[in-house]
Design a protein around this nucleic acid. Structure first.
Lengths: 179, 179
DNA sequence: GTCTATACTTCGATAGAC
DNA sequence: GTCTATCGAAGTATAGAC
């Protein structure tokens, strides 16, 4: 419950506003209880990150069974809430070594799993994997999805429709061949 | 001088560590002087952002005259220092409305200028702009450059060599035709 | 412009009673 | 597990002397 509240606070107001006092207020507890469950705030941030991490890996694995797997993957990595949280964690990692290491570890783990999944999706789709190697597609779609999501959230959308048209065409083509 | 120090602090330790006390310490001043030059910390962040903004637009305009213009643009938007700062500002924008608006405004302005430049570069290069519309190339290279830079900085580099090989091939092809 | 002094708030974290 | 009490540090910001 505390981690839920912490995540919400972080997405809405940034990592700097996740303080023991504010978090406690949101959860209807006394600030001291935060330190009972998580000795330091670093412990809390790490616990939250690991939780989000597990959830993302689990959801990513689930796209394999979807009717339109690449679309499902794209939607997953485009999720506004997730992207906002990811940005906060990256900024947080800038001055918390423990977080930075965990993010780096996760980044590679998530990508490794994603490449495996894309390998299957692309093979079934009939797309030429010499032109579109799964590794490249992974880097490509994650970059695009996150950039578009964050810029959209900020309110800068110039060029997005044109880009999305091309991206959607690619996704649909892959998912069409997939069935 | 203060803005230089603030930018450095922000890149190194995150926006949350840009406080009047720490900034003053770094600059060898008393904390109260910060408030003399910038009444509030918001004013300071805005002033810093506008400064970085102008600098980026200026540097982007300069790539037109470069021998390898697309490579010059790619290097510009891949700059580790700039990307780190950009992430901090986005995170900061999450809970400072004034910053968010300024970033959105800049995002569209920067992209608009970039599309214009890419229009020239791509036209000269002989690349088929029906396959590679300048707007799409703009969204694409900014997404890729920033994602790769930030992940690199964190220490997650899985798949980067493969992606860069493909990106570099495209850039070289464009710049080759450009001369 | 730079200083001292200072007000007020919020922070992380611990001790100890129940 | 939850409470009261409390410490010391750090934050933003203002007033006023020089």
């Amino acid at each position: 419950m505390l981690l839920d509240a912490a995540g919400e606070l972080m997405r809405e107001s940034g990592y700097a506003s996740v303080t023991s006092r504010r978090l406690a207020a949101k959860a209807g507890l006394k600030p001291q209880l935060i330190h009972y469950y998580f000795r330091t705030m670093d412990d809390l941030f790490l616990a939250l990150f690991r939780r989000v991490e597990d959830d993302l890996v689990r959801r990513q694995n689930a796209v394999v069974g979807a009717e339109k797997p690449l679309r499902a993957l794209w939607d997953l990595i485009s999720d506004r809430q997730d992207v906002a949280l990811a940005y906060e964690f990256v900024a947080l990692a800038n001055h918390r070594a423990a977080i930075r290491e965990e993010i780096a570890r996760f980044g590679d783990k998530f990508r490794k799993a994603q490449i495996k999944i894309l390998d299957q999706i692309l093979a079934k789709s009939g797309v030429d994997t010499r032109v579109w190697p799964p590794t490249f597609v992974s880097v490509l779609i994650n970059s695009l999805a996150r950039s578009l999501a964050v810029q959209d959230a900020l309110g800068a959308k110039l060029g997005h429709p044109e880009a999305l048209a091309i991206i959607n065409r690619f996704i649909d083509q892959v998912d069409k061949g997939s069935n």
